[in-house]
């Protein structure tokens, strides 16, 4: 692991975390969508520096889709029913979660193994997806199909009842 990979990893991590904070804090769906796209770019950089080029390509496409969905002006804002106190409790809970995960990460470096996969690893991933774990691939395909069909059906029902 040379220092060029390390610099790419840390820069991509900063970009990704900055985008994540933008999704959480920025006003306006356009800015939040742009922040989600920034998260996707940073995430792809992280995966590339971890020798996971195929995952980087998939993450880039998927998070571009997420950014498009978040930034779309076709969704109406839907106010939640949770009061400000519970939102603050949730934010404190997220901070506590960060503390617990950071402690776990700090204690997590207890196992080491060599890496023999390539920089992209498509052939090995293909063997995993279509031979070793074919059932989970089918389940994922069904999940995607149900999600998009359900979203379309929900839109159509809402449009008809309007």
């Amino acid at each position: 692991m040379d220092s060029l990979h390390a610099i790419g990893f840390y820069v991509s991590s900063g970009v990704s975390l900055a985008g994540a904070m933008g999704v959480a804090l920025l006003p306006g769906r356009g800015l939040r969508g742009a922040s989600m796209a920034v998260v996707g770019v940073g995430l792809a950089g992280i995966y590339l520096s971890l020798s996971a080029g195929f995952v980087a390509a998939v993450a880039l496409v998927c998070y571009a889709g997420c950014a498009f969905l978040v930034a779309s002006p076709l969704y109406r804002p839907l106010e939640g029913v949770v009061g400000p106190m519970w939102r603050q409790v949730g934010a404190i809970g997220a901070a506590a979660l960060l503390a617990i995960l950071a402690y776990s990460a700090f204690r997590g470096d207890f196992v080491h193994a060599g890496f023999y996969g390539g920089a992209f690893g498509v052939a090995n991933l293909g063997r995993l997806f279509f031979a070793h774990d074919a059932l989970s691939t089918e389940a994922l395909a069904v999940l995607v199909l149900v999600a998009f069909a359900g979203a379309t059906a929900a839109w159509r029902v809402r449009e008809r009842t309007r």
């Binding site: 990979h5 990704s16 992280i46 409790v89 949730g90 960060l98 776990s104 990460a105």
Partner: peptide, 24 residues
């Protein structure tokens, strides 16, 4: 260098940021 601890720290930051966005 990159090690597993650094990767876990980044992952923790992303998970906590997502939880914060969902709650806030």
């Amino acid at each position: 260098t990159i090690n597993l601890v650094a990767v876990f720290f980044v992952a923790a930051g992303l998970i906590a940021a997502g939880a914060f966005a969902a709650a806030w």
